[in-house]
Design a binder for these strands. Structure first.
Lengths: 161, 161
DNA sequence: ATGATTAAGCTAAGCACTTAGCTAGAATAG
DNA sequence: CTATTCTAGCTAAGTGCTTAGCTTAATCAT
């Protein structure tokens, strides 16, 4: 407990001895761990000329399977961002030729975002590297511990409060 | 495993059957859990006329103990943000009278950020409410499970890679 | 002493998100 | 059919961070 969060808890203990600040130990480490993980992943993305949001869009299209086409609304749902954020991401990806906007044949209002061959090639090259980075991040934990962590996170993450 | 992350893993399984995507189960849940936690905390902050960044500054000053004064550089370190982000936070907090900038008597370049009485009163009122929200978020887990989660997070968060 | 380098804190500009508001097409009511 | 309402996707403006670059004071070398 000599990490940053541990030090913070000791400060609270000294300043507010009556207060039970133990929840901060968990939530604090959760936030900080998420931040450091995010920054390590960013390194891998950069090596492939991507950032987290570009990787997110391309990977979502890839894992959706052939014909690798989704609507902006579907992309927004998957990425938990607004449809306007999707539009801005697509503007950049389309300019780079990694995705293409097509008219939705079944809905005149709608657009289908297609993964181009270039985009598919890029994400398929970046994906194994990304997984390798994730494995490295988790390497201090055994397989059982990783499973336990995922389970614990799932139990607090999916509570709609 | 019928949550959002579980669905994503199934998609990868179908599209790239050879690939071991198990790290995504852990990292994905970590990111999403951090996001949902953040959004629940935001509700509490708002009830007290604060947001996460304002709470962060005021709480850091409070837990530093009397005389409740820190330099902008110290605040930046504690909050893991740039000193320029601190300056912008302080501009707003100072305008509201929650903190005050004072000259550092020992360093002509330096500033000391002081928690005002108003600021101290506000953060002391918000703090128990915040802890209550954190407790609610963690309530699906037993005390032992919470401790286990904090331990696992600590082991992957503090690895400098 | 004095000139060069380092350090603290700030503003300015850039970036990725948000919400608000727009346009065009689809669905629904009469 | 036509008028209204709803939906998909977009741009515009606002927010809070980042990095770059500035000013001022401290430190260090000679």
């Amino acid at each position: 407990m000599t990490d940053q969060v541990g030090r913070i808890l000791e400060q609270w203990q000294r300043e507010k001895p009556g207060l039970d600040v133990s929840p901060m130990a968990v939530i604090g480490r959760l936030s900080r761990t998420a931040l450091t993980v995010e920054s390590r992943l960013a390194g891998t993305f950069e090596r492939h000329g991507l950032d987290a949001s570009a990787f997110d869009v391309l990977a979502t299209l890839l894992r959706s399977g052939a014909p690798y086409r989704l609507s902006p609304a579907e992309l927004a749902l998957e990425s938990m961002i607004s449809t306007s954020a999707v539009a801005q991401r697509l503007n950049k990806l389309e300019a780079r030729g990694l995705v293409a906007r097509e008219a939705n044949p079944n809905d005149g209002r709608g657009t289908l975002v297609a993964l181009t061959d270039t985009g598919k090639g890029l994400i398929e090259k970046a994906l194994p590297d990304h997984l390798e980075t994730e494995r490295a991040i988790l390497s201090p934990l055994s397989g059982d511990e990783q499973a336990a962590l995922a389970l614990l996170l799932g139990r607090i993450g999916n509570t709609e409060g």
